[in-house]
Write a protein that binds this DNA or RNA. Structure first.
Lengths: 197, 197
DNA sequence: CAGCAATTAGATAGATCGCTCTAGCGCGAA
DNA sequence: TTCGCGCTAGAGCGATCTATCTAATTGCTG
């Protein structure tokens, strides 16, 4: 039942929130259990591997949820180009409304640990590959060849991640706005029968 | 004289190296002075504001140097489209050769502190604006209108930063490769008289 | 040379780090 | 009830964190 999340879930959600805000190294385990309203011992009961195992779980869970959100945005749009435009627009709105905090939930932690923790790096890699696959499917469904669909998915998500970085530094949605225009244009150009409007 | 860097310079360079590898919170000041072969007290003599002031300086110095490197790559290319292609190619080669460490020197630290340290966030923002301006100048020199040149600079650098993220997670240059193709295509499409080859 | 500021040098304080440990609680099964 | 087990609960360990402090040394200036 999602109405009463378990202690383990509360720990994961609190960690995801804190890791996104202050990063992995910048977040202490005491801070996590305090925000999760969880006893300290429970963290090491559910995650015997400690902070690293928790980080891996957070990457997989938060990454999966985040991908699902944007899948839903695209699937609710009339066509994939509109879906991409809406994704970037929604990302910018959400980022601004959250006080320039809620960008990609795993980008910060991925960059932090990519050279230090193989399990976490691989978890992030697998999450990203999942995103590429799901977004690529949408492009293929619109008639784009598989190889180009994958390339388009990678560039679209690169634009999104880069846009997040610049927007958080600038406290402005400009970068996501122009990146969204560019991403939509790239997808439109790749469609088999581009709309001649 | 660059042959014998000062203590302050050694501290900044060592910090830049460590921040890029392990992030800001993940790097200790003792680690910094050890790698810089500097006395501990010198750090707080040159940076009375402590780690935050050091981080700000590192962002400005490393960000400025990094921008200058890619300016040089573009200016040594026969045209701006080739320059963009070469920039992404060189970024991928350098990233791989460094053991998937040497990506953007300030992206990790920027995401880590964007919500916590105003001085560091603003420093990163100003560095990024400098990059946008310099790259925009190159596009304007190729005949692209100022507003579009800025948008193109932002999207090009978003592709680069997003590509860095995915490549570090995947330990593969694929993302930078396809992002480079996309960036070059976008610039080519914006040129006033596109080559008809 | 003397005098002074800049810098080097490192010990140490006080807080926080990740983590381990034992004890006790709650609840379903026998 | 009585057992057994998953989970809660938090005290506390050694290590490490950032930052401060005083003293010694260096190098420039008159």
């Amino acid at each position: 039942m999602s109405s009463t999340p378990t202690t383990k879930e509360r720990i994961v959600y609190a960690s995801a929130d804190l890791f996104r805000r202050r990063g992995f190294s910048g977040t202490g385990v005491k801070q996590i259990v305090a925000q999760a309203r969880a006893p300290f011992g429970s963290l090491y009961h559910h995650f015997p591997g400690g902070k690293e195992e928790l980080g891996e779980e957070v990457i997989r869970v938060a990454g999966g949820m985040y991908g699902a959100i944007y899948e839903a945005v695209i699937d609710q749009s009339p066509d994939v180009v509109t879906g991409i435009e809406e994704t970037f627009r929604a990302a910018g709105v959400h980022l601004a409304e959250s006080g320039w905090v809620d960008a990609c939930p795993i980008a910060t932690i991925t960059l932090e640990v990519a050279s230090d923790s193989a399990p976490m790096r691989i978890a992030a890699h697998e999450v990203f590959e999942g995103w590429f696959a799901k977004l690529g499917e949408r492009f293929e469904a619109a008639g784009i060849a598989p190889a180009q669909a994958r390339a388009l998915a990678i560039t679209t998500l690169s634009l999104l991640e880069g846009g997040f970085l610049f927007c958080r530094a600038a406290r402005s949605t400009e970068a996501l706005d122009v990146a969204g225009v560019q991403a939509a244009a790239a997808v439109r150009a790749a469609l088999p029968q581009p709309p001649h409007s």
